[in-house]
Computed example of a mutant assay.
Amino acid sequence: MNHFLQLIAIVSLQYGPIVVQNEQSYVLTSSCGGVVTEGSSCVLTCETSAVTETPIVWTRGTNPPYGVKRTTCTTSDPAVPSDYVLACPGTSFTLTITNASVIRDKTTWKCGGSLGGKESDAINLDVKVQNEQSYVLTSSCGGVVTEGSSCVLTCETSAVTETPIVWTRGTNPPYGVKRTTCTTSDPSVPSDYVLACPGTSFTLNITAASVTRDKTTWKCGGSLGGKKSDAINLDVKVQNEQSYVLTSSCGGVVTEGSSCVLTCETSAVTETPIVWTRGTNPPYGVKRTTCTTSDPSVPSDYVLACPGTSFTLNITAASVTRDKTTWKCGGSLGGKKSDAINLDVKGSPSTATAQPPKLLYLLFLIPVIIIGISIGIGISVFVLKVRRRIREQV
Rank of each mutant, 00 (worst) to 15 (best):
7 L>S: 11
8 I>T: 05
10 I>M: 02
14 Q>M: 05
18 I>G: 02
25 S>V: 00
26 Y>W: 15
26 Y>S: 09
27 V>P: 00
32 C>W: 13
38 E>D: 07
44 L>T: 10
45 T>M: 02
48 T>L: 14
56 I>S: 13
70 R>A: 13
70 R>I: 08
72 T>H: 13
78 P>N: 12
83 D>G: 02
84 Y>D: 10
86 L>Y: 06
96 T>P: 00
103 I>S: 13
107 T>L: 12
111 C>N: 06
117 G>K: 10
118 K>D: 09
122 A>T: 14
126 D>P: 00
126 D>L: 14
130 Q>V: 12
135 Y>M: 04
138 T>F: 06
138 T>S: 13
143 G>M: 14
154 T>Y: 04
157 T>E: 01
158 S>E: 09
173 P>R: 14
179 R>D: 09
180 T>E: 12
182 C>D: 12
182 C>H: 10
198 P>I: 04
199 G>N: 15
208 A>D: 05
217 T>N: 15
219 K>A: 03
220 C>W: 11
222 G>C: 11
222 G>P: 09
226 G>S: 08
228 K>H: 12
229 S>W: 09
233 N>V: 07
233 N>L: 05
237 K>G: 03
239 Q>N: 04
250 C>H: 02
251 G>W: 05
254 V>Y: 11
258 S>H: 09
263 T>P: 00
264 C>L: 04
268 A>P: 01
269 V>G: 03
281 N>W: 02
281 N>A: 14
282 P>H: 08
285 G>K: 13
293 T>F: 07
303 V>D: 10
307 P>C: 02
310 S>A: 06
320 V>L: 12
329 C>R: 01
334 G>Y: 13
335 G>S: 13
335 G>W: 09
343 L>E: 00
345 V>K: 00
350 S>G: 15
354 A>P: 01
357 P>M: 01
365 L>F: 15
371 I>Y: 12
372 G>K: 08
374 S>N: 11
376 G>T: 15
378 G>R: 06
381 V>P: 06
385 K>D: 11
